[in-house]
Nucleic acid binder design. Structure first.
Lengths: 235, 235
DNA sequence: GTAATAGTGTCTTTCAGACAATATCGA
DNA sequence: TCGATATTGTCTGAAAGACACTATTAC
């Protein structure tokens, strides 16, 4: 084994980096798409808003770390959709030293106010169009942009819109999700036909609700499929 | 700052892990989808086939590391499409110690034989349906599965099929890509109409080729768009 | 001429979007 | 009754899949 055999050798200590998870948590509140941010109470970027997150512990999987941080900083837990977004690792993205961050996209039904994290920093839901990218810590503005893009795209070809809804929901609630995420109005009648005809997207519970006034609506649960075919188009 | 304020503090040395990039490199050879694997010449998994990859150096970005490994182990470089696939970090995925691996998906035109890596390990193209998942090193079987799924999905709604083709190519060459990746026959006439009508997918060069016998075919270059609308459907 | 591949046209069915019409509640 | 929302139906135009047909080369 030559000194050139770097790629396969055990890495020396100077090739080890801090590894963190960051969470891009979306929900719908008041018909608007909102993102969870926490206010940093220590340097760097003290006082700036940042994504919730933290370092990965030695014995936990990456997804576990994401779930743990989600629970610690929001009180949210099971029932929240969590998927990997991307990994950010520019050498200077963290002034404290090289840090690799695995970003996760989380979609949550409208929850109560977020609980303060264990570090007592302030956590708050922000409408996405009220977030000032320039003031965010680290490269979190970029991560949020990527998360938004992913969420918007996923509504088209996956049943993830339902992840923003409670376990049982109406077609109108689901439509409100799509309208909030895409920022555009959708025809209620065509939307209704599309989602109820999309095989496996929704399963009717048989129960009805009249919580919204007007004619009572059928309640649905999330179906079993992972890919919408045909997709729910945006236009 | 309490000891509980773990999430925001600078991480101690025991919270640093090795960080690697692994490459899922696909190409089309002999009308079949092929994957580049290297034979490991040192433990662990000595003698097993693995994805090309290596550790991230202190001053390079993650994408740079992926490009460097690609060049070192394949001789490939510019002109290869490279995108992040996912990050794998199960605590025990590497018996040498905790290693976080950022996997990249690379799509390459049919190239010459891969050059031997700088560590002289053997590199070889494998038809994807000839790969024995059970014999692969680490969790690479899973990574390959994820890469395959991503590649298959991306052909539908992105112009990435062209990443498997040389800079100038015919519709038939592009169709061969789709057929290899999807493993199914496509009607040449409908395919031709779909891709040439898809706005921004292909730009004709004006030149023709008769390399395949029969009527000469128009040559195209990759267009400028990133998303196909409408998508190229699979059925 | 034949064989092979490239490319166009045409038919049918399916589906998306616009929007009328009907259904079922509360007040 | 009206106002609100839910749900179904109907029409039209666009697009997909099947496949006949024409075009242009090599031999």
């Amino acid at each position: 084994m030559t000194p050139m055999n770097r790629a396969k050798a055990t890495p020396p200590t100077n090739l080890r980096y801090a590894v963190a998870v960051d969470l891009v948590v979306f929900t719908i509140r008041d018909r608007r798409l909102c993102l969870l941010l926490v206010e940093r109470d220590i340097p760097p970027f003290q006082g700036a808003w940042a994504l919730p997150g933290g370092f990965v512990l030695p014995d936990e999987d990456l997804r576990e770390a994401a779930y743990r941080e989600l629970a610690e900083e929001t009180g949210l837990g099971s029932g929240v959709h969590l998927e990997q977004l991307a990994t950010y690792g520019a050498p200077t993205r963290d002034p404290r030293g090289r840090t690799i961050s695995i970003a996760w996209l989380a979609l949550s039904p409208d929850a109560a106010e977020p609980v303060a994290g264990s570090d007592a920093s302030r956590a708050q839901w922000w409408p996405v169009d009220h977030i000032d990218s320039a003031t965010l810590a680290f490269d979190h503005a970029r991560i949020i942009t990527d998360g938004l893009e992913r969420a918007r795209a996923k509504l088209e070809y996956s049943p993830l819109g339902a992840a923003f809804c409670p376990p049982e929901f109406t077609v109108a609630q689901l439509r409100a999700v799509y309208e909030a995420v895409w920022g555009q109005h959708l025809d209620p009648r065509n939307f209704h036909r599309k989602v109820t005809k999309s095989p496996g997207f929704l399963t009717p519970t048989g129960a009805m609700t009249n919580a919204d006034g007007g004619r009572p609506a059928q309640l649905y649960r999330r179906g079993v499929i992972d890919v919408l075919n045909p997709p729910i188009t945006r236009s």
